[in-house]
Amino acid sequence: MYQDPKRIRKNRVSLNLDDYEAAVINALVDYTGTDRASLLRQMLIAQAEAALLPTPPSMAGGTPHSEAHIRSI
């Protein structure tokens, strides 16, 4: 049925937000017109890629991310 069964989204994650954080997410949902789950998934994956695949200093013009900076992301 599916070309790659591992691509089926079956792993759930719970996330608790306060009213201010939820308002920011809801504003982004309203602005982009996408659904909340898709928006949060895209944001999560973008942050994970940024933490795991930092841009080399020669290309970014700065210093590489420190371990403490990556943990704070």
Rank of each mutant, 00 (worst) to 15 (best):
A27C: 11
Y2Q: 13
I8E: 14
S38N: 12
A27Q: 12
G33W: 05
D19A: 15
L17I: 07
S72F: 05
H69G: 03
P57H: 01
K6H: 13
G61Y: 01
Q47W: 07
P54V: 01
K10A: 10
V13M: 09
Q47S: 12
D19G: 07
I45F: 13
G33N: 04
R41A: 04
K6I: 09
D4N: 15
I70M: 04
P5N: 10
S14E: 09
A37M: 10
G62S: 13
N11L: 11
P57E: 00
L17Q: 05
D35S: 03
A68Y: 05
L40N: 03
R36W: 10
K6F: 09
A50C: 08
R71G: 01
A68N: 06
D35E: 13
N16F: 12
R7K: 15
A60I: 00
E21N: 10
P57M: 01
P5M: 13
N26F: 06
L52T: 06
A46I: 03
D18R: 05
S66F: 03
P56K: 06
A60V: 04
P57Q: 01
D4Q: 13
S72H: 06
R12M: 11
E67V: 06
V13Q: 07
E49N: 15
N16P: 02
Q42G: 11
S72I: 03
S72M: 06
P54D: 00
I25Y: 01
V13L: 15
E49H: 09
P54Q: 00
P5Y: 09
L28I: 11
N26G: 05
S38R: 07
Y31F: 12
A50I: 03
I70V: 15
